[in-house]
Simulated scan of single mutants.
Amino acid sequence: MEGLNIALKSAVEKDIFKGVSIPNGGPQISHLFYADDALFLGEWSKSNLKNLARILKCFQVSSGLKVNFQKSKVFGVGATLRETTNWANILGCEAGCLPFTYLGVPVGANMNLIKKLGSGN
């Protein structure tokens, strides 16, 4: 996974893959890894998705590790299910719908909900 981490960082630096920029001058995030699990975050563009597919295929060839595209999903924030499905086909995986759970954390559920810890509410 360290090789994939280096490849993604290099692709972002060379503007081959465009991650998601955090507001207010925050960093650009392109991927998160936990053990053998990966989450890729990027600009919603066909060229970005095709470049991610190329990076993952190069990773497979160079590492000998297989990316299981059948267990993978593409999520399009603000995109229609039809568009997301078409783009997921580029990677050979299926479209996912928000909200979903990643490593036990809900993602895409009411993102405007603010909960005060210890307030008893």
Rank of each mutant, 00 (worst) to 15 (best):
S119R: 05
G3C: 06
L81Q: 15
G92N: 09
L117G: 11
D15W: 09
D36E: 10
L113G: 03
V74D: 03
F59H: 04
K14G: 02
K73C: 11
I114N: 12
K57P: 00
N68V: 02
L117T: 06
G96Q: 09
C58F: 02
G26Q: 04
K73G: 01
W44A: 10
N68D: 13
G76N: 07
N51C: 08
G108W: 02
I16H: 06
L113S: 13
W87G: 00
Q70C: 11
L113D: 07
S62C: 15
A88Y: 11
F75C: 08
L81H: 15
P99A: 07
Y102N: 03
G92K: 10
C93T: 11
I16A: 08
A38Y: 03
L56I: 09
P99F: 05
K14Y: 01
R54P: 00
N24I: 09
A79R: 09
S21W: 01
R82G: 10
W87Y: 11
N112S: 13
K116C: 11
D37F: 02
F100N: 03
L4P: 03
G64A: 07
G26E: 04
E83M: 12
K18N: 05
K115W: 04
K73T: 13
V107H: 03
N5P: 00
S119H: 06
K57W: 02
Y34F: 15
S30L: 00
W44Y: 13
C58N: 08
I55Q: 00
F33Y: 13
F40G: 03
K115I: 13
L81F: 13
V12W: 02
N51K: 11
G108S: 07
T85H: 04
A11V: 08
N89R: 14
A79M: 15
Q60R: 07
K46H: 11
V105L: 13
L32F: 09
N68R: 09
P106M: 09
T101R: 14
L81M: 15
E94L: 14
